[in-house]
Design a protein around this nucleic acid. Structure first.
Lengths: 233, 233
DNA sequence: GAAATATAGTGTAAAAAATACACTAAATAC
DNA sequence: GTATTTAGTGTATTTTTTACACTATATTTC
């Protein structure tokens, strides 16, 4: 793409708006009773060898969301997940290479969609606990924290937890999702009452068996698409 | 800025991420009992002569928010208002000049900060009713609708209405702000009860007089900075 | 196979918040 | 001084939130 509209004379090319655009993806999942985030090890400078959010430069004909999905897939092998735009970071010095503006995306996936290592670029993609992770490249820590707050807020008034769970799950399992995200315990009876009266779930006629305790009823989400509620918790 | 990381061979420069960045600002105010939006008439192609959101290209060393404030000031003479990032629009064909990604901003101002025509670039800046406005350039209608939803949601759980009101106002006046934004009436007694128990307001020892009715007590916001509430309406 | 252990599952009372609803008060206009 | 306009106020009902403890049913252990 050429400089299509330079506003002033040739020397004073200050307002041309030129920049490079990337997307970076903060993708959360739950594994081993922890809220985790997917990071990739950088192969090139700057920040070579450091862990960073998956992401990369837009192509000429892609939407921003398409870039995010493509980069996520190329770098980590993950696809078909819930994805929404988070925030755009454009501080002039955020990338040592020059003016790089990043449209950050927020993503959620159940653990079974996070089968890494299956894919090409996935050798250096790994899940890390949100509470304990390596130092990140660029301003990715700031982006991650913003994504975490988005998650903590949004599960209050949406049905987004479907995107972190398998098709069938017990009430204790969905409660654990909320507790991990909020990093606090909630009351079991009140949680169940609320969750069931919201009407988002349908009971299945199966149970989670084989564990060393009373079998738990399984439930599924009625709809696995984004639903916003008037109020939630 | 050079092409610092070209992923493939030289001919196939597809992933370079090059684009131009703009910010566009959706700024709301209340005038004559209507929720209004500030638009500027375009002086150049494309969409020459059409009304559009104020905005423009980033400078090399500006943050995105600085660009938004500068463009708003240059094009409309408005400054010192509440401003937050809204969403970033990057569809490849949204601008006929080429790849232009816009970081849209959301702004609110009390009417007295909207004294247009005082400024240089303000000849072609005008307020229009949100419910009835001219056809907009680019994808600005979509951006405006997104901003309106943000506003409708955010006044539920923040103290943002301070940024649409003068320093002193009556309870009827702040109620009118909510009614205009939500485009529906609310119950007067319940509204006052809620608003006062929230503790955001302090009563002033003055009244709104000179009108042909009983004088109304004046109130002010305790803090005129962004406060998020657990719940609101 | 009895006991220990682990998690599933359930109800109620109290407090807080939301909702529905109608009349009196105090100024100006005529 | 009568009409008009908006300010200002309280209560009863319903809904939602919160706090709180025991029994049920499976597996594991001895």
């Amino acid at each position: 793409m050429k400089n299509s509209k330079v506003t002033k004379t040739k020397k004073e090319h200050i307002n041309t708006g030129n920049a490079k655009i990337t997307t970076d993806i903060v993708i959360f999942t739950i594994e081993d009773g922890e809220l985790k985030i997917l990071l990739v090890k950088r192969k090139y400078e700057p920040f070579k060898g450091r862990w960073a959010l998956p992401g990369g430069f837009i192509k000429e004909v892609e939407t921003l969301e398409e870039t995010a999905r493509r980069e996520l897939s190329e770098e980590t092998g993950v696809s078909g997940v819930y994805l929404e735009q988070l925030y755009t970071f454009g501080e002039p010095k955020r990338d040592p290479r020059g003016r790089v503006v990043t449209a950050a995306y927020f993503a959620l996936a159940p653990k079974h969609l996070m089968s890494l290592s299956a894919s090409s670029g996935a050798e250096d993609a790994k899940l890390f606990s949100v509470k304990k992770h390596p130092e990140l490249a660029f301003d990715h820590e700031k982006i991650m924290q913003k994504a975490l707050h988005r998650l903590q807020n949004k599960i209050q008034y949406t049905n987004l937890s479907w995107s972190l769970l398998p098709n069938a799950f017990t009430l204790s399992e969905i409660q654990a999702v909320y507790e991990l995200i909020w990093d606090k315990k909630v009351d079991k009876r009140n949680f169940r009452k609320k969750m069931l009266t919201l009407g988002l779930l349908k009971p299945l006629s199966k149970e989670r068996t084989g564990l060393r305790q009373r079998p738990a009823k399984l439930y599924a989400f009625k709809t696995k698409t984004y639903v916003e509620l008037r109020r939630f918790f």
